[in-house]
């Protein structure tokens, strides 16, 4: 390969070695703004945090000495005279996934520089996120007040049920809350027109975070409520 050329862009080699040469070329490895790559790397790191939380949960659950309560009973609600297992969680999950949809649309409109729609959709996303956190607060209250579950004890069986539940959903809830704040700040700046010069990659970056939080919820949902 002729390495005397300082700039290797436009230089192609066939096959795998071409791909490697391309990726390892100068200036940048990924064709994206710095902030976006940084968000991806942060999310990778955060993925490890949640994976370790969930692995810890599985381990604790398997080695707990007392019975593990049946989640579909614990998380059931009486609504309109019906006994509905997991209904609240179903609604919460639906809300959060919907918010990912509005977020994706916001990103689209941001790149089209339609500031009004972008702001509206981001606001909708934040509201959906906030209502998710609200429902979570309701669920926690129900567990603590009605069922008597505490982080350190649990009348229905293994104490670790409460410990892991509060810890992991709490950590996730904090992520959602942080996301709501983050989205609100970015939306405000979009409304002010702060990004007209720099471009709207920031909306996509915020969106990445939001989708990630949403995806993590799917795993928490599966591990806590369906297992």
């Amino acid at each position: 390969m002729d390495t005397s050329k300082p700039d290797n862009s436009g230089y192609t080699e066939p096959g795998v070695s071409g791909m490697v040469a391309d990726w390892a070329a100068d200036k940048q490895a990924f064709d994206m703004p710095w902030g976006k790559l940084m968000m991806w790397i942060f999310l990778l790191s955060d993925t490890f945090i949640f994976s370790i939380f969930l692995t810890g949960y599985m381990n604790v659950r398997l080695s707990a000495t007392d019975n593990w309560p049946n989640p579909s009973e614990v998380f059931a609600l009486e609504m309109f005279g019906h006994h509905l297992p997991l209904i609240l969680i179903a609604i919460m999950t639906f809300v959060l996934i919907t918010s990912s949809g509005t977020m994706a649309m916001a990103v689209n409109f941001a790149y089209r520089r339609d500031r009004r729609k972008t702001v509206l959709l981001m606001a909708a996303t934040a509201v959906l996120g906030a209502s998710f956190v609200g429902m979570q607060a309701f669920e926690w209250t129900k567990l603590i007040v009605d069922e008597g579950v505490r982080p350190w004890s649990n009348p229905m069986g293994a104490a670790q049920f409460g410990s892991t539940f509060f810890m992991i959903t709490g950590f996730h809830g904090m992520h959602v809350t942080a996301g709501v704040i983050y989205l609100s700040i970015v939306a405000r700046r979009v409304a002010r027109g702060d990004y007209e010069q720099k471009g709207y990659a920031i909306v996509e970056i915020a969106g990445l975070y939001w989708h990630f939080v949403d995806l993590v919820w799917v795993f928490i949902f599966a591990f806590f409520y369906l297992w």
Partner: peptide
């Protein structure tokens, strides 16, 4: 990854 100067390939 992203801020290497011209000619500074990874290798």
């Amino acid at each position: 990854l992203q801020a290497r100067t011209r000619g500074m390939t990874l290798m």
